[in-house]
């Protein structure tokens, strides 16, 4: 190890470090672009605005629930309010394309479907739209992940994949 203190050798080590770091960075960024464009993973999108005072009278939020919109395609209209989800129980078939359309009537809430990467915020005045597919039948907890006051811990529902 005495050799490593030679100045030229230190330079070599530094170069190796720099190359390793650069390769790691490029790999990470490559993986990111591949996941975004190759695999089509998208973050929750801010689709449209909504008047927070009239959410319950604005379609589709006047009728929250699950509805089939096409062959093996479902829409879930989801409302969050302090401190519950409406509907509390969501039933969708395995393998179907599911689109969540969601908003809140009061403060910021979140939707985290346990065991999946579905995790999005419900922001007053905005409509969140997230697509996904549940491949395996089973049951997932749907938890509010954004702290929303005294009843935050009782704000959860279930997604049942049949």
């Amino acid at each position: 190890m005495a050799d490593s203190q030679h100045p030229l050798d230190a330079e070599r080590i530094e170069k190796v470090f720099l190359i390793i770091t650069a390769v790691m960075l490029l790999t990470f960024l490559g993986a990111l672009f591949y996941s975004a464009f190759g695999m089509g993973m998208h973050l929750p999108d801010r689709e449209e605005q909504i008047d927070v005072r009239e959410v319950r009278d604005t379609p589709p939020f006047d009728e929250p629930g699950v509805r089939q919109v096409g062959d093996n395609e479902y829409e879930v209209v989801l409302l969050g309010y302090a401190w519950a989800f409406q509907p509390r129980e969501i039933r969708v078939p395995a393998g179907a394309k599911v689109t969540f359309i969601a908003t809140t009537t009061d403060v910021i809430h979140g939707v985290h479907i346990e065991g999946t990467r579905m995790n999005f915020m419900l922001i007053p005045g905005q409509v969140a739209r997230v697509e996904g597919t549940f491949r395996e039948p089973g049951e997932h907890l749907m938890i509010c992940h954004e702290y929303c006051g005294a009843g935050h811990h009782i704000m959860y529902g279930r997604v049942i994949v049949e």
């Binding site: 960075l25 975004a36 973050l43 999005f120 915020m121 922001i123």
Partner: peptide, 18 residues
């Protein structure tokens, strides 16, 4: 990231963070 800022803003902040 869960707010829904759109893919361009999110990609920028991913890269900057790394």
């Amino acid at each position: 990231f869960t707010v829904g800022l759109g893919p361009i803003a999110d990609s920028f902040f991913v890269a900057a963070t790394m």
